[in-house]
């Protein structure tokens, strides 16, 4: 093995590109995710998140560029590398015809570092009987069971691809609680992919935003939120041409008042608005949800009403 390991990065891509015919799923992605803590990956549908995971796990060849996971080329993952990477997908795909006990026994034999206490701790949060068939579990129970299996493998890296999709509020809460507070998660880097900004806000140390296969942001969620600001300006007649507004993410005109969501604009934006004839200018902070969504919807913003 003469593969150089990039210390500290659990995931590293360089110039990673994946095309499906003419469609670009991942576009020259340079991503380096450090080990430790919880990283949230956020992006609209089709942003390339699932494609990225499939490339990283070696289930899809890249068109060009490099992809490494735990320092290993994704195309050459060995069984022992796979042991160190947990992966939970949104469907919580498990062998539905088997009992919980049988699935557990199988995983226990296959994963040398299996931790029964970790499994017991996590599964304890859910009302799962070992004699039940997996197909008889509710979606939430299945998610919990899947998480318990993944955590009991004691992975160094745990990738969760929209794990709470389709879960009800209670199940979602239980899932997050387990993820955040189980002892089994300690020392494990978690990649959390979600559409639910509420979850991201609760769990993420680091917010990674992908859009159209490209990386758009890597920072703690609060840092990103502080980059986006909401300005309310009373501008008689027409506002400035949206194309001239610096850092514009979203523009709305409500009852004659202009609302702008802008990125990376300081107090000088007030001056810009004044210069455009604004009489009264206010700056408001925005929620993470709004910041991320406006950032992501920027590409397909509705035309500004005149």
């Amino acid at each position: 093995m003469n593969e150089t390991r990039h210390a500290g990065y659990v995931i590293e891509t360089r110039g990673l590109t994946k095309r499906y015919g003419k469609k670009i799923a991942i576009d020259h992605l340079d991503l380096a995710i450090e080990s430790g803590s919880i990283h949230a990956i956020v992006g609209a549908n089709g942003a390339g998140k699932s494609t990225l995971f499939r490339v990283l796990l070696g289930f899809l060849p890249a068109t060009s560029g490099e992809a490494r996971i735990l320092g290993r080329d994704s195309r050459r993952l060995t069984p022992s590398d796979r042991e160190r990477i947990g992966f939970v997908n949104e469907e919580h795909t498990l062998q539905g015809w088997m009992t919980v006990a049988a699935v557990t026994a199988m995983q226990r034999r296959q994963y040398p570092r299996w931790s029964q206490p970790a499994f017991d701790e996590v599964i304890g949060h859910y009302n799962v009987q070992v004699g039940q068939k997996v197909s008889q579990l509710s979606r939430g129970e299945r998610a919990g069971f899947n998480l318990a299996l993944s955590l009991a493998q004691r992975p160094e890296l745990l990738v969760l691809d929209e794990p709470t999709l389709g879960l009800d509020v209670v199940a979602k809460r239980a899932f997050l609680e387990t993820l955040l507070h189980s002892n089994a998660v300690e020392g494990c880097t978690v990649i959390y992919c979600s559409h639910q900004m509420e979850e991201v806000e609760r769990v993420a140390d680091n917010l990674i935003i992908m859009e159209r296969g490209a990386l758009r942001n890597v920072s703690p969620p609060d840092d990103f939120r502080s980059r986006v600001s909401h300005w309310i300006a009373d501008i008689p007649f027409r506002g400035p041409d949206p194309r001239t507004i610096p850092g514009l993410l979203d523009a709305q005109r409500i009852d004659g008042i202009h609302h702008y969501l802008v990125l990376d604009q300081g107090e000088e934006f007030a001056e810009f608005l004044h210069a455009c004839g604004a009489r009264d200018v206010h700056r408001l902070p925005v929620s993470l949800d709004r910041a991320v969504n406006s950032f992501l919807s920027k590409q397909h913003a509705a035309p500004v009403a005149a």
Binding site: M197, E201, R202, P221, D222, P285, S287, L288, D289
Partner: peptide, 10 residues
């Protein structure tokens, strides 16, 4: 409250 303009830490 998530979705609040203030970060959770704040």
């Amino acid at each position: 409250a998530t979705g609040d303009p203030r970060p959770i830490g704040k």
